[in-house]
């Protein structure tokens, strides 16, 4: 990579880091000004809504399988169902994910 390309990589790295850190710092200072109040009540309501909605949006986008065909969708549906069922039984984090991946893989291999 020539120098200008390295400069671009550093600019993107610094910019991305700033977008991750500076708003966090800003909100921490905003909360400090309202010391004594419940932090959640001090946060703008739209902001506390946006977090779960971002996760929902990431979930929706990640549902699209690598292979967009009947097998891919059947594996996705089965994986989602098994993940949910195992989560309802265990209320844990790792096991439902593992079971979901196995179910997805089993359907994918069986019908490909």
């Amino acid at each position: 990579m020539h120098d200008s390309l390295w400069l671009a990589v550093v600019a993107i790295a610094v910019g991305t880091f700033s977008m991750r850190f500076l708003p966090m710092l800003w909100m921490q200072r905003h909360l400090d000004k309202h010391d004594g109040q419940d932090a959640i009540d001090v946060m703008p309501q739209w902001l506390s809504l946006l977090g779960p909605m971002m996760i929902a949006a990431m979930f929706g986008g990640s549902l699209v399988p690598n292979s967009v065909n009947l097998t891919g969708w059947a594996a996705t549906a089965c994986g989602v169902l098994v993940t949910l069922l195992v989560w309802r039984r265990t209320l844990s984090l790792g096991l439902p994910v593992l079971a979901g991946v196995f179910a997805y893989g089993a359907v994918f291999i069986a019908f490909r």
Binding site: A8, M19, M27, Q28, A39
Partner: peptide
Amino acid sequence: LWLVVIMTLLINARHVVYGPNLAP
């Protein structure tokens, strides 16, 4: 390169809401 930097930063702009959500 200036366009590359702007476009990549635009894609990452969604990160600005993550920090404030965790701040409490």
